[in-house]
Deep mutational scan, measured.
Amino acid sequence: GPGLTDLFKTEKAAVKKMAKAIMADPSKADDVYQKWADKGYTLTQLSDFLKSKTRGKYDRVYNGYMTYR
């Protein structure tokens, strides 16, 4: 089956995709945050998933999740 690194890459891609969806349409934020909360994502995990070469690119999404939880 898929190894943990593959799983991480898949999760990371999914999280980034959802983060971009929030940035494009902030009204989606609560739905996405709820999904992440259901998956039990911690802020540390989210921070790892949303690492970007562009500093602060996903800060709004991260901060939103922090206040959501």
Rank of each mutant, 00 (worst) to 15 (best):
G1W: 09
G1I: 10
G1K: 09
G1L: 11
G1R: 08
G1A: 15
G1S: 12
G1N: 15
P2S: 11
P2H: 12
P2C: 15
P2R: 09
P2M: 08
P2V: 10
G3A: 15
G3T: 14
G3F: 05
G3L: 15
L4P: 14
L4N: 12
L4Q: 13
L4K: 12
L4Y: 08
L4V: 14
T5K: 15
T5N: 13
T5P: 08
T5C: 15
T5G: 14
T5V: 11
D6E: 09
D6V: 06
D6M: 05
D6I: 07
D6P: 12
L7H: 15
F8G: 09
F8C: 13
F8Y: 15
F8K: 12
K9L: 07
K9F: 07
K9S: 06
K9V: 07
T10N: 11
T10C: 15
T10P: 08
T10R: 13
T10Y: 11
T10F: 08
E11S: 04
E11Q: 08
E11Y: 03
E11T: 07
E11A: 06
E11V: 06
K12M: 13
K12A: 14
K12W: 04
A13C: 12
A13D: 07
A13Q: 09
A13W: 08
A13G: 06
A14Y: 10
A14Q: 12
A14C: 15
A14E: 14
A14R: 12
A14P: 02
V15L: 03
V15S: 01
V15G: 01
K16N: 04
K16R: 15
K16F: 05
K16P: 01
K17N: 08
K17M: 10
K17C: 12
M18T: 03
M18C: 11
M18P: 00
M18Q: 14
M18D: 15
A19I: 03
A19Y: 02
K20Q: 11
K20T: 06
K20Y: 06
K20W: 08
A21N: 05
A21E: 14
A21P: 01
A21R: 07
I22P: 00
I22S: 02
I22Q: 00
M23K: 04
M23P: 00
M23W: 03
A24Q: 12
A24F: 09
D25V: 03
D25H: 05
D25Y: 04
D25K: 04
D25I: 03
D25F: 05
D25A: 04
D25G: 02
P26W: 13
P26M: 06
P26N: 05
P26T: 05
P26G: 05
S27A: 09
S27N: 07
S27I: 06
S27Q: 07
S27L: 07
K28D: 03
K28P: 01
K28W: 05
K28H: 08
K28M: 13
K28I: 14
A29E: 06
A29I: 02
A29N: 02
A29V: 03
A29R: 04
D30H: 15
D30I: 11
D30W: 13
D30Y: 13
D30F: 12
D31G: 09
D31Y: 12
D31T: 10
D31C: 15
D31A: 13
V32G: 04
V32P: 01
V32D: 01
V32C: 05
V32N: 03
V32F: 04
Y33M: 01
Y33N: 01
Y33D: 00
Y33K: 01
Q34M: 09
Q34P: 04
Q34L: 06
Q34S: 12
Q34D: 04
Q34R: 14
K35E: 14
K35Y: 15
K35V: 12
W36H: 00
W36N: 00
W36S: 00
W36A: 00
A37W: 15
A37L: 14
A37P: 00
A37K: 07
A37S: 10
A37Y: 14
A37N: 08
A37T: 09
A37F: 14
A37V: 14
D38N: 09
D38I: 07
D38F: 07
D38K: 09
K39F: 08
K39V: 07
K39W: 09
K39C: 11
K39E: 07
G40W: 02
G40S: 04
G40T: 02
G40I: 01
G40C: 06
G40F: 03
G40A: 04
G40P: 06
Y41S: 01
Y41C: 02
Y41K: 01
T42P: 02
T42Q: 03
T42L: 03
T42K: 04
T42G: 04
T42Y: 02
T42I: 03
T42M: 03
L43Y: 05
L43Q: 04
L43V: 08
L43W: 04
L43E: 05
T44F: 09
T44N: 11
Q45K: 07
Q45A: 07
Q45D: 08
Q45Y: 03
Q45P: 01
L46Q: 00
L46W: 01
L46C: 02
L46E: 00
L46D: 00
L46V: 08
S47P: 01
S47E: 10
S47N: 09
S47H: 13
D48Y: 15
F49R: 02
F49I: 07
F49V: 04
L50S: 00
L50C: 01
L50W: 02
L50Y: 00
L50R: 01
L50M: 03
L50K: 01
L50D: 00
L50T: 02
K51Q: 11
K51V: 11
K51G: 14
K51E: 11
K51A: 08
K51Y: 08
S52Q: 05
S52I: 09
K53Q: 11
K53M: 06
K53C: 07
K53R: 13
T54R: 09
T54F: 08
T54L: 07
T54G: 06
T54M: 07
R55F: 07
R55K: 12
R55Y: 10
R55I: 13
G56M: 05
G56S: 07
G56Y: 06
G56D: 09
G56K: 05
G56T: 07
G56E: 06
K57P: 04
K57N: 05
K57R: 09
K57W: 06
Y58K: 01
Y58E: 01
Y58W: 10
Y58Q: 01
Y58V: 02
Y58N: 02
D59Y: 08
D59G: 05
D59K: 09
D59M: 07
D59H: 08
D59T: 08
R60L: 10
R60Y: 14
R60A: 15
V61F: 02
V61I: 12
V61L: 04
V61W: 02
V61P: 02
Y62V: 15
Y62T: 11
Y62A: 04
Y62W: 08
Y62Q: 05
Y62L: 15
N63K: 13
N63F: 14
N63I: 15
N63C: 15
N63P: 02
N63R: 12
G64M: 03
G64P: 00
G64Q: 04
G64C: 04
G64L: 02
G64F: 02
G64H: 03
Y65M: 02
Y65I: 01
Y65T: 00
M66R: 10
M66V: 14
M66Y: 07
M66F: 07
M66G: 05
M66D: 09
T67N: 14
T67D: 15
Y68C: 03
Y68F: 14
Y68E: 01
Y68D: 02
Y68K: 02
R69M: 15
R69C: 15
